[in-house]
Amino acid sequence: MDESADNRPPLLVLVGPTAVGKTALSLQLAKALNAEIISGDSMQVYRRMDIGTAKLMPVDREGIPHHLIDICEPEYPFSVSEFQSLCTEKISEIHSRGRLPFIVGGTGLYVESVCYGFQFQDIGADESFRGEMRTFAQEHGAQALHDRLQGVDSVSANKLHPNDEGRVIRALEVFHLTGKPLSELQDQSRGDDKKSPYRLCIIGLTMDRADLYSRIEQRVDEMLALGLVDEVRSLLREGVPRDAVSMRGLGYKEIVASLAGEMSDAEAVDILKRDTRHFAKRQLSWFRHMKALEWVDVGNDAKNSTLFAEICAIIAGKFQIDIEYI
């Protein structure tokens, strides 16, 4: 298809591992491109979970509209299919205003489900099976549940941490319902850029692994200094169950365990830093298989003017007929 004849609406996407510098760069780009930002983060949907999710607060958004942040209570088990539906609606609304929709986030499955229209709703659900898997995890542990997934869908298992019980169970449920691994079904949905409902421009940020890990450790220290422990304590006091999907997220489950006396504060911090490094590695692995993704090495300075010009040039080249966005 000749790109000049491509009438699909444009969609800009910025992905990358945690702490790589997506937030600061996204504000620069949104201003330059007349864009509105849609959060592609599975945890920022939850209200009052601000510090542990590295949420950009309204006062710091520099007048740029941000969507799909603070849209549900921490007790609610928000899902990728809900994200896909809500995000698709927001993209249409933003286009109707003559602005560029701009997804920014690090939850690969969420972002890719929108980019390539994954058909989650067609798979269905089996609440009885989910209950059996939750019981199995309680009796045998998260690792044993993860091992079951490894046996039927090693690709999905390698992307998911054993503590990510909800997504591990969903992957098992998909295999249970369809007889096919979730990873295989996702591959069938992905296709290339021409199969997307949008003209995609996907920018992926990366940097030297040692520098990234240093930034991750610094971010964890900053979260603690900002009051992460008090944030978690407040959520528990208001009655958010520790087994809620939200409370099993990085930065929350570790602090919950330390507040429950199951580990020392120092152990909780060490585990949080370690697991966040592992999470960043899995994010990079996920993004590497995304088609039509343009990698940009941001070094240790995502605000560099040369870097900004490089990214704008990539976007201008991709959205040729929408050069007015630049």
Rank of each mutant, 00 (worst) to 15 (best):
Q186A: 11
M263H: 07
Q186T: 09
G191Y: 00
I216H: 04
K195C: 03
P241M: 14
R237K: 08
L228G: 11
M263N: 12
P181V: 06
M247T: 00
R209N: 12
P197S: 05
Q186N: 07
L226Q: 08
S234F: 10
I203K: 12
D270W: 12
K180F: 05
L259F: 05
L259I: 04
D270G: 09
L205S: 04
D243Q: 08
L226G: 11
L177F: 01
P241D: 02
D230W: 09
L182Q: 10
L236S: 10
V220K: 03
D243M: 09
Y252A: 05
L226C: 13
R209W: 01
L272K: 11
S183T: 15
D265L: 06
L205T: 06
S214C: 13
D211F: 08
R219N: 13
A225H: 08
M207T: 10
V232E: 12
R209Q: 15
A244R: 06
L228Y: 13
G227F: 13
K253R: 13
M223E: 03
K195M: 13
R242A: 05
G251A: 01
A257H: 06
A257P: 02
R190L: 01
D192R: 07
S234G: 14
D230N: 10
T206W: 14
A266T: 07
I202W: 05
P241L: 07
V229G: 13
D243E: 13
E267M: 14
Y213G: 15
I255N: 03
R209F: 10
L259Q: 10
M223W: 14
C201I: 01
D187P: 00
L200E: 02
E267P: 11
D221G: 11
T178H: 01
E231N: 03
Y213H: 14
P181G: 11
R190C: 00
K253V: 12
K194H: 11
D243H: 14
A260I: 13
D265F: 11
P241T: 08
A210T: 04
E217M: 07
S258K: 13
M207A: 11
K195S: 08
L200I: 01
V269Q: 12
L224T: 05
C201S: 14
A210F: 10
L228C: 15
L182N: 15
